[in-house]
């Protein structure tokens, strides 16, 4: 019991430290200007971790939905729903930071090119928006039931079905169009930053920090919902 508490305190402290370190050091450290991006690629520290965090939370949500279908524990349903909702939050943050970044970098060019200056039609951007639509629909589905076990079961089925469709989507959308992201998915972002090795040592800890922060938010929401669930059950 005591060990569990230590771990819970430790990961929260670590999350604060890592994100705080990323915020302060990432904004103040001297960095080389990359052609075209200039110094705007400091945003890497805030934009890219959102994506990692969102994917991990959605995977966790799918895993708890599978658990629910196997064991039918209400806690699994609460965990799945809350992971999806925190995932949506990080997805929105990822979209917003991405839009700001592309606006700063390509805004002028896109406006001249008869394109929307705010929406770049980048595959990863489209993919993020589709994920958002799928999981917002998941919450609409949850709101459409009154009976709790029916709601839990049917939304778990939809969650797994949606997650199964995400994988083919990840292959087909980047193929359908070129993009703004480095490496177009083949080499990944780190290949572009290959000769900026020291930045890598900051990037991964910040990613970890945001993931821990998401787990923290998720834990709080899960505890709140479980308490609420117990009160409702006691009332009945």
């Amino acid at each position: 019991m005591k060990k569990g508490k230590l771990i819970r305190t430790a990961y929260k402290a670590m999350s604060v430290l890592l994100i705080g370190f990323g915020l302060i050091y990432g904004l103040t450290m001297p960095i080389p200007a990359i052609p075209m991006l200039g110094h705007s690629w400091r945003n890497l520290l805030y934009h890219v971790p959102m994506w990692y965090t969102q994917i991990i939370l959605l995977l966790v949500s799918g895993w708890h939905s599978i658990q629910y279908l196997q064991k039918a524990k209400p806690e699994s349903d609460i965990r799945a729903a809350q992971a999806a909702s925190v995932g949506i939050m990080f997805g929105i943050l990822g979209l917003v930071t991405g839009i700001v970044w592309s606006r700063v970098t390509w805004g002028a060019a896109m406006a001249n090119d008869n394109f929307s200056a705010w929406w770049a039609w980048d595959p990863k951007q489209i993919f993020a928006l589709i994920l958002l639509l799928i999981y917002l629909a998941y919450f609409l589905l949850r709101d459409s039931f009154n009976e709790p076990t029916q709601k839990a079961k049917i939304s778990a089925v939809y969650n797994i079905f949606g997650a199964a469709l995400i994988i083919p989507m990840y292959y087909i959308i980047p193929k359908a169009m070129g993009g703004l992201h480095p490496g177009s998915g083949e080499e990944g972002i780190m290949a572009t930053l290959g000769n900026l090795g020291s930045y890598r040592a900051i990037f991964y800890p910040v990613v970890l920090g945001f993931i821990l922060l998401a787990v923290w938010i998720w834990e709080i929401r899960v505890r709140f919902r479980i308490a609420e669930h117990k009160i409702l059950e006691a009332d009945l």
């Binding site: 799928i134 459409s144 469709l165």
Partner: peptide, 17 residues
Amino acid sequence: QNKATLLAVLSFPLTIP
């Protein structure tokens, strides 16, 4: 309960690929 809206909203993103 809201079958018609729900079907459209659930299926649009899933049919994209």
